[in-house]
Amino acid sequence: MWNIFTERLRQGSRTIAWPDGPAPQLDPRWRGAPVIDRARCASECEACAEACPTEAITLGGERAVVDLGRCLFCTDCEAACPSGAVSYGREFSLAAREREALFREGEVVAKAQALDLASRKLFGRSLKLRQVSAGGCNACEADVNVLGTIGWDLGRFGIQFVASPRHADGLLITGPVSQHMELALKTAWEAIPAPKLVIAVGACAISGGPFRDHPEVLNGASSVVPVDLFIPGCPPHPLTTLDGLLRLLGRLG
């Protein structure tokens, strides 16, 4: 018994200070959204777009658009670029309310808008979510799960993952939605009392990710249910997911 107390004292309090205090330090090698500096591109060169495993990059004229909904945040575009035009942003706030808002140019990043006032009144201080993995590889799942640990303590925002859709205000979906999970996902969504929210986490749930256009998958959550919040990444950093959830609820400025 005594050793349980002494260990408790030794481990200390380890919950992050954010959003009231500073955000936890992201590793120097952590990659945010890829940014393509068109001024440095060699003419006619499309090496980055060709190398992208999920065709997330569209080049045209002066413009370079990266679809963060497809982006795996890998290094293939950077490695392919002969002129060092690809770099990665440090912004972790990447979530969006609309699919179109994930098509981004340069570093300008619009933050996800909060729900309307009526929905904020309903969910703002108590949001119960049912998580459904629909073909997820367990990385998005693991880094959503981590929000429940003492390091992140999701409960302090009134956000909680619940065991039944009947107890939930919404779904948090990971994975490209395998054909085999379509029915279960639909059933879970239907079982949630309205009004309800859907949050798609990770490249797979947004666009199919590396499995896009496989006959076995449906290219993401939108193919089955309407999505209210898209959180990009492969997987998204827990900070990106938490930021998205809090912005949705209007709890960040």
Partner: peptide
């Protein structure tokens, strides 16, 4: 089981080659 079937091996064989490593990385993402 079978609910998670995403056709990993089929995708590796079909290509495109640039996706292969990413399919392997996410065969079991943990």
């Amino acid at each position: 089981l079978g609910y998670q079937h995403r056709g990993v091996e089929g995708g590796i064989l079909r290509g495109p080659t640039k996706r292969v490593l990413h399919l392997v990385e996410t065969a079991a993402g943990d």
